[in-house]
Design a protein around this nucleic acid. Sequence first.
DNA 1: AGCAGACCTCAGAG
DNA 2: ACTCTGAGGTCTG
Length: 382
Amino acid sequence: MTLRAAEWHKLPTSLTELCINTTLRCGQSFRWRKSAEDEWSCALHALHYRAIYPSPTTKLLTPPPSNAPSVTAEDDTLALINHYFNLAPDLGQLRAPKFTGIRILRQDAWEALIGFICSSNNISRISGMVHNLCLHYGPLIAHLDDVTYHDFPTPDALSGPDVEAHLMKLGFGYRAKYIAKTARIVSQDKGLKWLQDLSNPECPQFGVPEQPAGELLEGGREGYRKAHEELLALHGVGPKVADCVYLFGLGWSESVPVDTHVWQIAQRDYKFGKDKHSSLTAATYIAVGNHFRKLWGKEAGWAHSVLFTADLKAFSERVVAKKEVKEEEVVVKQEDGETVVEDVIKKETTKRKRVKKEPGENEHNVLEVKTETTRRSKRQRA
DNA sequence: AGCAGACCTCAGAG
DNA sequence: ACTCTGAGGTCTG
């Protein structure tokens, strides 16, 4: 593995337009990790990014979903960053509630699908599960500063015969079956292209040209309503998980995932929870989404995330989950003639601790991005 | 259509 | 040190 460093680039945005600490922690993605040195990192595409604030330092590390188009030049790196962080829309122009810096990431649809199947959990536990998926089934991308970076596993990698039992052992619970079944359907039956073709044509997967997506109707645009039916057929995918995938992985901005949190907000601020909609039934779920769409149109999902995060934020000022990682077992084993680099079963214990709000959280620093290109010199073999 | 209980793990309460 | 309860979303009956 060779790393080639490139010039420093200034990300074409300000912190009013993108707040990394909020955007990467608000429960829309589960793979970014923040180190003790205040650096964010994630394996994503065949690249290695580095972003810093004047102080403290923030680093974004990145390598590739194997299904993504290969990107090598720095110009494309910037395009990828613009795409992933969804930097094109001007937040100042949005009618959504004011809460600066929250972006709806444009994540890989497959990763979002599996990630949100794990999502009947708190964010730190979902992150742990997704991390374990990458560690055990994702291709090794880089070894840097004593940290190994694995990409998100492909549908093929998750459709082996022992996946369900193994995930059970890793503490996935009933989600183990959902993941195994969904992976098998996508890899052997429907195909990844099927999933990606459910994307909003106005907001396609990286590298795909944009197409118009039609008029907004009460229940969302035609394509969104149609995509709805498709994903619900998968095991472990109900309306909430499907809406998360539409919003964060398939670019349908009118999607409003109603979880218990959003349901609280709907009751508290929008007079839901009475008569007809006294509990969160399927009909109530649709009514909440339609109400948000009536208020914010195509940006309903964005607005929803802002409200959601604002609530999350208020919560996190009082109580912050502090994580302790304990290594229980380290095994090196072989699979299919390829070296499985580390088979580490980690158990994460979460302790709740009262802390003050982190200083500098909302400071308007300049965000810079350093790009580096990773090249795989050779595939590791046993 | 709505609702209750099962699924599974973990944290927190008692 | 122990058991019990509740949270999280989906599925089944």
